[in-house]
Amino acid sequence: MSAAQHRAADTVLEASGVTMIFGGLTALNDVSIRLEEGRIVGLIGPNGAGKTTLFNCLTGLYTPTRGSVRLRGKSLPSDPAKVTSAGIARTFQNIRLFPNMTVLENVLVGRHIRMKQGPIASVFHGPVFRKGEAAARAKSRELLEFVGLRGVETEVARNLPYGDQRRLEIARALATEPEVLLLDEPTAGMNPQETEAARQLIFRIRDTGVSVVVIEHDTKFIFSLCDTVSVLVQGEVLVEGSPETVRDDPRVIEAYLGKPREEVEADVAEAAAQQQREDS
């Protein structure tokens, strides 16, 4: 095994035994997932399975009742701001941009932790400040370009079409220069072309060295995107493994997919064919 392969198998993010109880409701029960560097992990499961709750536990928005979350072996604080500084960025299921700020400003807010300007420098705008500001703007524009948002810099975020808002949210998350990116239903409400563009975007993000966890209901999308897939049902991990293993697992088909096996297989075959077309 070469050194590069070795590193590729390094664990970046690991949640073990995470349990989240709201009053009498156990939203997550002893959930463990592992994310390896440079990989894309999919998280699927029926509505209310606890997928978003898991994201909230990973990012410090919720403090798990039991269990631990570790980023590169270090356990994470239960403060979203500190978790972001540590290297985890996320998007939200129901888009949460800063609606009345411009597109560029939204991404600039994402640069917050990577900028050094203190209050005094912010008052006086000295040469160092200006250099930092210019660099942040350049980087933000680069990211907008990267996610495919052009010519809308000065538009206020709330006026963007739906799909563009999702992309902007990804650009904003990337601006924090995360090691791990958590995407909560990034293609919800998108048409097929946009969905495909989103898939390509996630691949490109992975290629820059960011490890990704994706929640999605669209199984075709997930199976053609992810290296491993975890299926969450009623707060527990039902199955975990490669897309092939997961889609073939009868429990998954019964518990989650709820459609006849042939249909699922057709989906997967189509996804595989698509993959082949791209590879050639």
Partner: peptide
């Protein structure tokens, strides 16, 4: 500045700002 944008972000959506 970074500070001012942080303030506006808090005004707009505090949870997203923390994120």
């Amino acid at each position: 500045s970074r500070m001012g944008r942080a303030w506006i972000a808090i005004r707009e959506d505090e949870d997203a700002a923390r994120a």
